[in-house]
């Protein structure tokens, strides 16, 4: 059951001097929910577009179902679904007509039953006659998903599917995705949100075209060997400056709190409290927590770019 369905080897895609994807190697197993995580410009979209056959790699290979994405493009096309960042639909066609069109071009015979099923599944049935441009963002996204599922693909590529979608629709969407996973489909999605990445079975953290960390979210956190001291205080910026100047710890600033990255061995709340006093830092709360994927990711990026002392 745990067979490899996507295999990427030393894949590079350059646009002139810009190394959008700079040598990534990955294997994704059947039935996985694989997350490509990274900031804008990390190379997530380029990776997905290359896998869909929209781009030819500069170097390296990518294989789906053991078929090459460039040379066997035709054989792959009917077995994958792709949802681009923009939820591309025909705004002047209705929900039904959009799905019908994509069913037609995929050559799906008797699509009507499958369409009803997908509409039920995405809870779009009551709106089926409405023009796509008159739908809300979340509904558009679900319709785009339905369109990309009409030909029952085995792999689904989702490029930032929840960007710009309201939280309620996002939760809805995730529910649909987990139903799909249960049906045995393999999903590869990119997302800039680390809370979403936490829900993937495997995650690749991408930065500047490279994978800087790869594994199950839990493993990534464990492997990072870090813990986090979380402080809440009034003058977060001052505290950050003090810690950065007078200790060797890395600091991650969030809106209302500050996270100090510490080696797991140093994880002792009491000694930290003393240290803070020595540095003349006042705070309203202190606690040691295990790192989130976000912490790990920022830490990895900082390490990569040599920002760590």
């Amino acid at each position: 059951m745990n067979s490899t369905i996507i295999e990427i080897a030393a894949l590079k895609k350059w646009f002139g001097d810009t190394k959008a994807v700079d040598g990534i190697t990955l294997q994704i197993s059947k039935g996985e929910m694989f997350g490509l995580v990274g900031p804008d410009g990390a190379g997530k979209t380029t990776t997905i577009r290359t896998l869909c056959g929209l781009m030819t790699p500069t170097e390296g290979t990518a294989r789906l179902f053991d078929l090459d994405v460039v040379t066997d493009k035709r054989k792959i096309q009917n077995r994958v679904g792709y949802l681009s960042q923009k939820f591309s639909l025909y705004g002047d066609l209705s929900i039904d007509e959009n799905i019908e069109f994509f069913a037609d071009v995929h050559g799906v015979p008797n699509y009507k039953k499958r369409r009803d099923l997908l509409l039920e599944f995405t809870r779009l049935t009551p709106f089926r006659d409405r023009a796509a441009e008159k739908l809300s963002g979340g509904m558009k996204q679900k319709l785009a998903l339905a369109c990309s599922l009409i030909h029952t693909p085995e792999i689904l590529f989702l490029d930032e599917p929840t960007t710009g979608v309201d939280p309620v629709s996002r939760r809805d969407f995730w529910k649909i995705l987990s139903d799909l996973l249960r049906q045995g489909i393999t999903i590869l999605m990119s997302t800039p949100y680390l809370d979403e990445a936490e829900r993937c079975s495997t995650v690749a953290l991408m930065h500047l075209g490279k994978i800087i960390a790869l594994g199950k979210p839990k493993e990534l956190k464990a492997r990072s060997g870090i813990n986090i001291v979380e402080l809440t205080a009034d003058s977060l910026r001052e505290i950050r400056e003090k810690i950065e100047q007078q200790t060797s710890y890395t600091v991650q600033l969030f809106g209302d709190r500050i996270n100090i990255v510490i080696p797991r061995a140093d994880a002792d709340e009491a000694s930290f409290a003393i240290k803070m006093k020595e540095l003349d830092i006042s705070y309203s709360s202190i606690r040691i927590i295990s790192p989130s994927l976000e912490n790990v990711f920022i830490y990895s990026v900082q390490q990569q770019s040599g920002a760590i002392k």
Binding site: Q77, Y82, S84, K86, S88, L89, Y90, V105, H106
Partner: peptide, 13 residues
């Protein structure tokens, strides 16, 4: 512009 062209390229058209 609306991105459907990209969507079509991915299909077997």
């Amino acid at each position: 512009e609306i991105g459907t062209l990209e969507q079509l390229i991915v299909t077997p058209i």
